Simulated scan of single mutants.
Amino acid sequence: MEQPVVIEEYNEKWPFEYQQEERKIKDALANKAIAIEHIGSTSVQGLGAKPIIDFMVGVRDLNEVEEFIEPLAKIGYEHVYHKEFPTRRFFRKGQRRAGTHHLHIYNYGSEEWKNNILFRDYLRTHPEVLKQYNQLKKELAEKYLNDRVAYTNAKNPFISDVIQKAKWSE
């Protein structure tokens, strides 16, 4: 069953949860991960979020991800195939549409990799934009309470705009 979209106030435990899980992921992937980053709203202090910890793992080649399926399964991550995202591999910990941790794997240094970091870091350093995004998320969560896909899609124009601003300010 689909969980409703609920935006919780920022929780100081999220970075700690990330660090604990990051160790397990590093162990499971051995030396295959070039970098692991905390992304998504739980990575931005003061930003409300769905209580899902997002990880981004950078690899040299997405074909390597086949080797990760079994080790990640042993620590509770299920591989979820998304044909609409050919440049990303995705793993979820927790139930479908109610995951507790999301693991996104990209080619290290790819456009998607850079955009995730640009967006996160821009929010971290621009309190006014963070406030706007927080407000938008709350409004969209009310509007799309039972439709996570619509909620996510409705955030995309704001996210794209922030990424463009971040690129211009580099």
Rank of each mutant, 00 (worst) to 15 (best):
Q20F: 07
Q20D: 05
Q20I: 11
E21W: 11
R23V: 15
K26E: 04
L29M: 07
L29N: 01
A30D: 15
A30M: 10
N31I: 07
A33V: 01
E37D: 07
E37V: 02
H38C: 06
H38S: 10
I39K: 01
I39F: 05
S43I: 01
Q45I: 07
L47E: 13
A49H: 01
A49K: 00
A49E: 13
A49T: 07
P51Q: 13
P51K: 03
F55M: 08
F55H: 11
V57E: 07
V57N: 15
V59I: 14
R60Y: 09
R60T: 11
L62R: 09
E66S: 08
E67F: 03
E67C: 08
F68W: 09
V80C: 14
E84G: 03
P86F: 00
T87H: 08
T87W: 02
R88V: 11
F90M: 04
F91T: 00
K93N: 10
R97Q: 14
G99V: 02
T100P: 05
L103Y: 01
I105F: 00
N107E: 11
W113K: 15
K114W: 07
N116D: 15
L118S: 11
L118Q: 05
F119L: 14
F119Y: 05
D121E: 09
D121P: 02
D121G: 04
R124N: 08
T125H: 10
V129N: 06
K131F: 01
